[in-house]
Simulated assay, not measured.
Amino acid sequence: MPKRFLQNYLEYTLFLSLIFVVKALPRTLALRIGAGLGLLSKVLLPKRRKRALENMRMAYPLMPEEELRNNVSEMFRHLGISGVEMLLLDTFKTKEDLEKYFSFHGLEHLREAYKLNKGVFLLSGHLGSWEVGTFFLPMLGCPADFVAKQMKNPYVGRYFNRLREAGGGRVLDAKHGARRIVKSLAENRAVAILLDQHTTPSVAVKVNFFGRPAYTTPIITQIAMKNGVPIVPCFTHRTKDNHYEIVFEPMILLAPDSDREAVVRNTALLTSIIEDAVRRDLTQWFWVHRRWRE
């Protein structure tokens, strides 16, 4: 029996045990434990902690060291809560859950974009509680698909995909996903893409993010420019009482143009929108990611 298979199976068994415990607890207690695990991970993962400190220090060079370290600690706490939130995605089921935990701002911008009948790009990033859109978008009557990378452990990956699709959305594999994205848009569905991760330089453009060059996928820009697809920035922030504030910003319509400079310019525009959203609460962004690479 291959070693990788045994490792995957063991990880999956432990993962199911964790889920059983989390779902047996009251939601508030489970999230509180998640916060504690997040702070513990700051201690157990020194390389991640160092990377977060370096990234935040470069982004905010004038920030006092004590404030910076406090923000990094709060970010780890946030990541721990986010991990538990994802395990509880399928516990949101009804309109009552929608009304109890979610508040929306600018929902009319999303409605207007759907009316163009060209599909909708939902622009977002690893900010706040980015996974909960898999629940609230279908519940709002907005058909949506979510682009996600596949995990190394296929058993855990399939479980997470079931969680993401429990509300009625669909998961699109990020690898070779352009054709699936275009098909979804042709069905007048929204396609949510997180545009704030490092992309292989050979298929990326380089734009500034917090004043530093970052390789970024141009896929939203290219498809939107070619097909006239509206782009609606959407960000979900967790409140102190573990509710969610969702902000939909006015839709963006990019002029048709195949010129590379236009692609870079428009990708920079979308990246700057994500940066502005991160600055509204920097402790809820994924600072442990190697976003800037040469």
Rank of each mutant, 00 (worst) to 15 (best):
P2R: 13
K3N: 13
I19R: 12
V22W: 10
K23D: 10
A24L: 14
L25A: 09
P26K: 05
P26T: 03
A30N: 08
L39C: 14
S41D: 09
R48I: 07
A52F: 04
N55R: 05
M56W: 02
M58D: 12
A59T: 00
Y60D: 04
Y60Q: 04
P64A: 09
P64D: 14
E67L: 12
E67A: 14
L68A: 07
R69Q: 15
N70I: 09
E74F: 10
F76I: 06
F76P: 04
L79F: 12
S82Y: 10
L88Q: 12
T91L: 11
T94Q: 09
E96T: 13
D97K: 04
F102G: 07
H105W: 05
G106M: 11
R111P: 00
N117P: 08
F121S: 01
F121Y: 06
L122I: 14
S124F: 08
S124W: 07
G125N: 00
L127A: 03
W130L: 03
F136D: 00
L137S: 01
P138R: 04
L140H: 08
G141N: 07
A144F: 03
D145K: 15
A148L: 12
K149A: 13
K152T: 13
P154I: 01
K175Y: 14
G177L: 04
A178P: 03
A178S: 14
V182D: 06
K183W: 10
S184E: 06
A186V: 00
A186G: 09
V191P: 04
L195V: 13
D196T: 04
Q197P: 13
T199M: 14
S202I: 13
P213Q: 06
T221F: 00
I223W: 02
M225R: 15
V229K: 05
V229C: 03
P230W: 07
H237R: 14
T239N: 15
Y244D: 02
E245V: 09
E245P: 00
E245K: 13
I252A: 02
D257R: 02
S258P: 10
D259R: 14
A262W: 02
A262Q: 03
R265W: 05
L270N: 02
E275M: 01
A277K: 06
V278Y: 05
R279A: 10
Q284L: 03
F286C: 03
F286I: 08
R290T: 00
W292V: 04
E294S: 11
E294M: 07
E294W: 08
E294Q: 11
